[in-house]
Simulated scan of single mutants.
Amino acid sequence: MRLPAWLSQHLAALRALLVLSALLGIVYPLLMVGIGRIPGLSGRADGSLIDKDGHPAGSRLIGQAFTDADGNPLKQYFQSRPSAAGDGYDPTSTSASNLGPENVVDTLGEGGRQSLLTQVCARSKAIGDLEGVDGGRPYCTPGGVGAVLAVFHRDGATGPVTRVVSLNEACPAEPFVATYGGVTVECATPGDDYAKGVVTPVRGGAADRPVVPADAVTASGSGLDPHISVAYARLQVNRVAAARGMSPADAQKLIDRYTTERLLGFVGAQGVNVLQLNLALDAAHPVRG
């Protein structure tokens, strides 16, 4: 007996549902789990975790902070690059800050927000102070904020300068420059409207190639980058070596050991895995309490 067309179609659909559910819901997942258990792949399938004293210390694929309870860098450890993922290196909130190069003006006052420029300037100054080097950068004030003025002209955007305000330095701060265009520079009063002024970044006298590398002051796109540049690692050598009572040469050898090469020999740049480097330091040169 031939079944009605509508019933045949429904049975065919049911058979397809059952077969695909079995293949994609059971067979395929089990196959992937089995492949993930193959020696050489199981570590990656489990998250590329690194153990220390029998406990997971982290993943070689995800960065982490090496700071104290107050967020201050621990001098005996190499520091990671900044992170904008959640509260930092949060894989459940991976993201960038979404701030662009034109984000140069801070929001002052209670609940204010730093511009990308000021974030970079503040980080560079802090790293310079920590490492004992010049943390200055172009378009940054000596105090570590964006060197940006609101320049008011008599005729709007043209004509003689009538007023100048340092947008990122709240009163009663002393502006980073005393005068601009022959006019005394004022500090900024939180809440005041300076929208009619021409936003004018001031380059200053910092070197074109700052001592503090770019990756030390900017977050990666994911906020999870476990690597730093070789230049940033070398910048930290003397501090870490002094804190551990070891020679800078021995610290440099460990940097060389945990430096990853460019992909395929030409894509990207060399990087240093910070977690692996710090664990190797703890094993070879523990801090004497």
Rank of each mutant, 00 (worst) to 15 (best):
V198W: 01
K125Q: 13
V230M: 10
T200F: 08
F176R: 00
A269K: 05
K196C: 04
Q252K: 11
R44C: 07
A206L: 12
G268R: 03
E131V: 04
V104L: 06
D70V: 00
Y28S: 12
T141K: 13
V267F: 14
N273I: 02
G221A: 09
P73D: 01
H55Q: 13
V230P: 08
P172Q: 08
T94V: 00
N103W: 09
G191R: 09
N168I: 04
P213G: 04
A126W: 07
P190N: 03
S21C: 10
D90T: 03
R81L: 04
L3P: 01
L20E: 03
H55D: 00
V133W: 02
A84K: 09
A173S: 15
L117A: 15
V148M: 03
L14M: 05
R60V: 15
D70I: 01
L14W: 06
R209C: 00
P39S: 15
G132W: 12
G63F: 07
F176G: 00
K125S: 08
G265H: 09
M32R: 11
P142E: 11
V165T: 08
S247D: 09
V199I: 11
F66D: 04
Q9L: 11
A233P: 06
A150C: 10
R60T: 15
M32Q: 12
D256R: 10
S59H: 11
Q119M: 10
G86H: 04
M32W: 12
G132A: 05
G132S: 11
A84D: 13
D129L: 13
R163L: 01
E110D: 12
G63R: 11
H153N: 07
P91F: 06
A85P: 05
Q79M: 04
H10D: 05
F66C: 05
D155K: 01
P29W: 09
V145D: 12
Q276N: 02
E131Y: 10
V27A: 15
R262V: 05
A242K: 08
V230H: 03
V287Q: 01
V133L: 08
G109P: 11
H55K: 15
H55P: 00
A219M: 05
A188S: 13
N103E: 14
H227I: 00
G271P: 12
Y180A: 02
I62F: 11
D106N: 14
G54K: 07
T158V: 06
G58S: 13
R257I: 09
G112N: 03
E110S: 15
S48Q: 07
N98G: 07
V161A: 02
V148S: 00
